[in-house]
Design a protein around this nucleic acid. Structure first.
Lengths: 205, 205
DNA sequence: AAAAAATATTGAACGCGTTCATTTTTTGAG
DNA sequence: CTCAAAAAATGAACGCGTTCAATATTTTTT
């Protein structure tokens, strides 16, 4: 039985992750102490650190799952045909926002963003940034798809415009998670208002 | 001599602030320990906390100074006449970026941003957010000034467009401070490229 | 000027994330 | 089965931001 060690390891990994996400959601990221997570997972504090580099690493697993799912959903949206730019873009953005609180709370998002800014050289930050870039690219891809179907004007720089729009989407998402009183609908409304002039201008005549 | 206490207080305030900014610049924000700051200022750790709510509070004084100055410079730019949208906008944005590292290092910016996201309910975050909004408003103001002078098309929503552009400016600034290798010129180039299509479209015929 | 009240200073102690020397468990060779 | 080497688990200890009860200083009262 040489797989004993590997099996135990996988089991503990799962138990720790489970305990962490449970506690993060129940008492919040900050109040969930490593000691508590370790205890709930039935291991010692030291063992926790054998399995995860640090507390923030636990978040990245969740962030990653969240963004991967939304990227897949986004690809499906891009593949479909769309009447106009507004419909297509706001469906994509709406999907991003609607999905955002599935696995993560606002507090967890804040922590993840905060960490990715504070320590840019860590693997955490680099993974976070890479996900951001893939989302940004997806908006560019949408514009390009629309352009090739004649929905977007031919003389538009889809990359420049896509990045501009996504950076606004992202910045507004930061405002959203900073404000416990703001709901997803309010967020969508704001972003639609801000993007409207650009969308109108880039639409084919 | 009833002003003795007040004078001592002002003196200590100054000494602590001086020690903190000196150390932040010399060894970085994270490595500057409260104990060191207190020692350099000739007070105890406890006294430090009598004068400042926490370590982050020391940063806000600097961030505030930085942004206030750049806002004033921005107003001066808006007051002047401009040939076209691109010149005006990129002069304003250029000013923001050029000024940004005068008092703060990239690391200090990262810490400030990180704090403002992580703990949105604190005075720190609220002051930071308020400064951001004033900057955003300034870009809107520039567009409105240009519009009233016939440089920007009459049918443009200056608020929506200004917010969109500023959020891109801000998000790119985050990327800038996250990347120690990126210089101000590179940052400006990127933002100009991203903003170009929008600027072109909003320009009066 | 002495006592009382108000205010400021202090540093030891606390909380929590993280590390690391030590101990325990698992593995595979003889 | 035995045992030495490898891998994993452990929890006490550390670093640093922050707090707070005790102490010291300044101001006000009488």
């Amino acid at each position: 039985m040489s797989g004993l060690r590997a099996q135990k390891k996988a089991d503990k990994n799962r138990r720790i992750l489970e305990a962490a996400t449970t506690l993060f959601r129940k008492v919040g990221y900050d109040s969930a102490r490593i000691e508590d997570i370790a205890e709930m997972a039935g291991v010692s504090v030291g063992t926790f650190y054998n399995y995860f580099k640090n507390k923030g690493d636990m978040l990245m697993a969740t962030v990653s799952m969240e963004v991967e799912e939304v990227l897949a959903a986004g690809d499906a949206i891009i593949a479909r045909e769309h009447e106009d730019v507004a419909t297509a873009l706001f469906e994509l953005i709406g999907k991003y926002y609607d999905h955002s609180l599935t696995y993560l709370s606002k507090e967890m998002w804040r922590t993840a963003m905060s960490l990715s800014i504070a320590q840019p050289e860590t693997p955490f930050s680099q993974r976070y940034t890479a996900l951001d870039h893939r989302l940004s690219k997806q908006v560019c891809d949408l514009f390009e798809a629309l352009q090739s179907r004649g929905v977007v004007r031919k003389d538009i720089d889809c990359t420049a415009t896509g990045e501009l729009v996504f950076n606004n989407v992202n910045m507004m998402f930061i405002e959203f998670v900073k404000d416990e009183d703001m709901d997803v609908d309010g967020l969508k409304q704001e972003v639609e208002r801000q993007s409207q002039p650009l969308v109108w201008m880039m639409s084919a005549a």
